[in-house]
Design a protein around this nucleic acid. Sequence first.
DNA 1: CGAATTTAGTTAGGTCCCTTATTGTATGGC
DNA 2: GCCATACAATAAGGGACCTAACTAAATTCG
Lengths: 183, 183
Amino acid sequence: MATVATRTAPFLSLPPVPRYERLKRLAERFPQLDMSAIQTCIAMLHLSHELTGAYDAHLARHGLSMGRFVVLIRLFSTEEVEDGRGLTPAELAESSCVSRATMTGLLDTLEKDDLISRQDHPEDRRMYTVKLTAKARKLLDGMLPDHYRRISALMAPLSEAERTTLQELMTKVSSGIPALRDP
Amino acid sequence: MATVATRTAPFLSLPPVPRYERLKRLAERFPQLDMSAIQTCIAMLHLSHELTGAYDAHLARHGLSMGRFVVLIRLFSTEEVEDGRGLTPAELAESSCVSRATMTGLLDTLEKDDLISRQDHPEDRRMYTVKLTAKARKLLDGMLPDHYRRISALMAPLSEAERTTLQELMTKVSSGIPALRDP
DNA sequence: CGAATTTAGTTAGGTCCCTTATTGTATGGC
DNA sequence: GCCATACAATAAGGGACCTAACTAAATTCG
């Protein structure tokens, strides 16, 4: 019962035991294990991995990473609404969900690639203002139609109602995250 | 209409324009933009970021990262079902969704921490077999009850029916990923 | 057999992001 | 006015993961 069978065949060339079987065995040993919770959690982590991988691969074809793209699109959509408005590194870090130190690095390479410029802040010499360059506007103008088509295609399998449901369910999961994280 | 108002107040201390407003403006300019698709996609990326962050923070308290934990749990659940069965680096890489090169690095540090051992493969001298050490079994035995409670708590806001729905919706999103990734 | 191909694991080098100091500037109480 | 405090950005160092190039062993096939 503990082993599958006496093995005469090559040691490691047996077909792997399916994940479901292994999980069930663990559930017998650990009564705290909630099988549907684990399965849903693994599915989320898996999708998250696939999604960010696909996103990165797509952006890489334009010389961008997720972090770089978020910075550019944030600046782009801000100047679209408030003409001439730039943002500080701290504002960009917050809206990009990265640390300020990481934002410094992102801005360094974006500036090196002539996609953003740093300009003195008129009122506080600790800060500066970040603005898009003409090159960056051109890059975004060129790539965004295709980009938006791709996001639309990604979500095409879901109806409007399903998108709403998905967002609601994700909000519920989000509310459980502190229970996973906190000491 | 292009600017919000004539600005006399400090340049950057205005409240930021909400994301929804900025998105609407972009949608006017780019007809390909599907607002509900973007919003759902951003929500997924955001949840993914929160979830992996929380997971990492939790595992870090046991000296583990996501990659290290997945390797250990895979070995643990395999030897639970097939006593004495080890896995090759290639099998571990595949089931952990990392490259073989990354697996080499993970195994190096796990071995240094005396959590796994590398043993000669009986039949193929290119490979070796990875096994848990007693120390690793003790670590997992100690941490898994709490770990499973945390996953259970994470998913507690969702009923069984909601978990099933969430998995179905995620499967649909997953089917759209090639459309995002492919050239 | 023995050369060519395939496969397993590793090494080298790079990207992205993190945390933890450090430096320079602003601010508020004495 | 001046000092302690707070805050913005940066530098230094580290972890996780990737791809591409390499080494060694096994397999295929003329």
